[in-house]
Design a protein around this nucleic acid. Structure first.
Lengths: 388, 388
DNA sequence: CTGAAAGCGCTTACAG
DNA sequence: CTGAAAGCGCTTACAG
């Protein structure tokens, strides 16, 4: 391998001169530069980034932890993040939870070992918030709460819930099924406790604090449906890894709940529900409306173009990238981190492209759920699966 | 940052002893080990992988170049590769062509600069094969031919074409439309020329050699359909980046070719065609059969469960990973590379899970197309979009 | 503006 | 079995 030393020798200059030329830092006389450059060309010299990174104690790598890259929501998120990070000079390491035996711990370990500069955490975690806070290296949470001092960014789920509720109420829905993750995921984790909330009135124990902000969309939707006296059920599907379970879920919904006239769920759920409805000859949207929550490309490619809450991947990725890079640049201390929000009190700062989530957060039905630091507006994209 | 030096000092031993303990290499007395380990614990020492990698001149990173990670085929491929690489101790760098201004050159540059140990190339390239051969660092081609000395792995497209042909012929198809990439992509690139092939008999200029082995599936399918005297057309869609174009394509197919009774294309194409057929009230599979080529999860989640050629992602990823790692371990010279296949002559070696692609390659309709070094069998998974 | 020297944190022959 | 020393390829104060 040809190194700087060889170039220096060939050009008859010192190591530092070569370095200056390569990096374009400081002044080098044209003559010197010319000599060095021609030597580089002659020797086919390529700087070894590994050495440079070693010196600077950086890798230029940011890990993105997702449950699995196969799920369309996460594949779009990862793509958007990858793009936003690339624009800012960082490369993306795919960290699929499905491929780590020890769960996210493995990736945190890599972070500690300086195999990457920071981590964007977009997967579910079984660790208590205290764990994340104690890591002391750059971490940003995507759409979840990871503990004090760790920034969190995501869509405005309260707005999402409201948009869906409006659509359903306006079109006269009578019995809505919400499909989502295990409800208990939304709840308290050990080591994280704030003032306890009361019963949600739906038979679900509402947690005092949650690591999973998505719950705010269900809670909002349910709150609005209750107000409008529209019946609603919640159906759990398993983890996102197992796409086949969605299919079974769709089958069971129609088997056991013949009288429903609206389904709300992730775009994967929605796609399978459409397939099943078509199979059963149920008319969509005449007899049944379907609304997808994520709006990945799957919402477009399913049996019909699905009406969907469009999460703004571009903005989300942009804000998340900027945030993690700020943490990396800022060093390891908490200087750049957002001040931890106090329990029950909504932070009034964290608002980039922030919508009114924060102000609305005070509503009673959201009591005890934790708003994200930074929240990005969503919008309803109308497809073929809802009535006007 | 606490380093080995600190640990050594705290434990009252030398640097090398600490290194031995950390790496578990060589003999260290229990007493010493104990002292070092307790010091490590006390100081919360975490080895700096960056330094270690620097010394060993490796990154542990393998770049996977795909057009875009959003396309279900590539998201499944990437996930499978990521898994297979992780199992073997390597991490995956997403290299999305869509996010590189300079195309793959940017990633090759990173490879040269030792920012990754190797590259798996699964995207289309505009470079002549000579370019790839000259790079002199570990590269493996997925489903394309990149020039002499560069291993290529992919599915057995000849078998794929035959399976589809059999299905269509058996069920009495009369007019088949194949949807695929720009046909001219399949053809010769500058700097790569072998004995010229003749006209395919379909009005398409058949190239003497191709960088895009997928053509073998179209050629085989068309050959078989010709033999059975079944009419067939080829419809081009644009690049895979633009998923919206698939929708337009589907629309146009039905608009202009009312009498078709079978469509063959990637699962994205197939999904959109189903959507359009449902919209138009065309009965699938009664009036129209649809067969997808990739069989990503989209084939399951589309309007109907699509009959599809299942590419064996697990095996493909396994073989590709093993191959690239072998190149990396073997060093930079050609020792570990497969011998370049001579023009017109089929290699008889490269067969891991290889099917009969190679032997079939001699068939006249494939003349001039280039078989992959290693080929993995496919199978037809029957869904709801074909007749029995 | 250019060069000699020290150092990034670790590993590895090489003496003891 | 343990320690002192050199070195991986580059960068960066620091003298000239």
């Amino acid at each position: 391998m040809v190194g700087m030393r060889d170039v220096a020798k060939a050009a008859g200059v010192s190591l530092s001169t070569v370095s200056l030329v390569v990096n374009g830092t400081g002044y080098v006389s044209d003559d010197m530069r010319e000599r060095v450059e021609s030597a580089m060309r002659q020797l086919d010299y390529v700087p070894n980034e590994l050495a440079r990174n070693f010196y600077h104690d950086r890798t230029g790598l940011i890990g993105v932890i997702v449950p699995t890259i196969i799920h369309p929501f996460f594949s779009m998120l990862t793509a958007a993040l990858q793009h936003a990070l690339a624009v800012r000079g960082y490369r993306t390491l795919v960290c699929s939870q499905a491929d780590s035996e020890t769960g996210e711990a493995e990736y945190i370990d890599m972070l500690q070992r300086h195999m990457m500069d920071g981590i964007i955490m977009a997967a579910h975690t079984s660790h208590a918030p205290g764990y994340w806070t104690s890591i002391g290296r750059p971490i940003v949470a995507f759409d979840r709460y990871l503990g004090e001092g760790i920034s969190s960014i995501g869509s405005d789920h309260v707005q999402g819930g409201q948009l869906i509720a409006e659509q359903l109420i306006r079109t006269g829905a009578r019995h809505v099924v919400c499909v989502g993750g295990p409800r208990r995921q939304f709840h308290d984790l050990p080591g994280d406790s704030y003032s306890a909330g009361s019963d949600s009135g739906n038979g679900y124990q509402k947690a005092s604090s949650t690591t999973f902000p998505t719950i705010r969309y269900y809670l909002t939707l349910e709150y609005e449906l209750n107000k409008a006296q529209i019946r609603h059920d919640y159906v759990e599907v398993g983890e996102v890894y197992d796409l086949q379970r969605y299919q079974r879920m769709a089958h069971e919904i129609f088997e056991h709940r013949g009288d429903i006239d609206a389904i709300v769920g992730s775009d994967v759920s929605a796609a399978y529900c459409i397939q099943e409805a078509l199979r059963l000859g149920i008319h969509v949207p005449g007899q049944l409306q379907i609304i997808a929550y994520d709006d990945s490309y799957l919402a477009e490619a399913a049996g019909m173009r699905i009406t969907a809450i469009r999460q703004d991947f571009t903005t989300l990725a942009q804000l998340t990238s900027e945030r993690i890079i700020r943490e990396i640049r800022g060093g390891d201390d908490d200087v750049t981190r957002t001040a931890p929000a106090e329990a029950g009190k909504e932070p009034s700062d964290g608002s980039f492209g922030a919508s009114a989530d924060a102000s609305r957060g005070a509503a009673a039905h959201l009591a005890g759920t934790r708003p994200l630091d930074t929240v990005v507006p969503v919008r309803l994209r109308v497809g073929e699966t809802t009535r006007t």
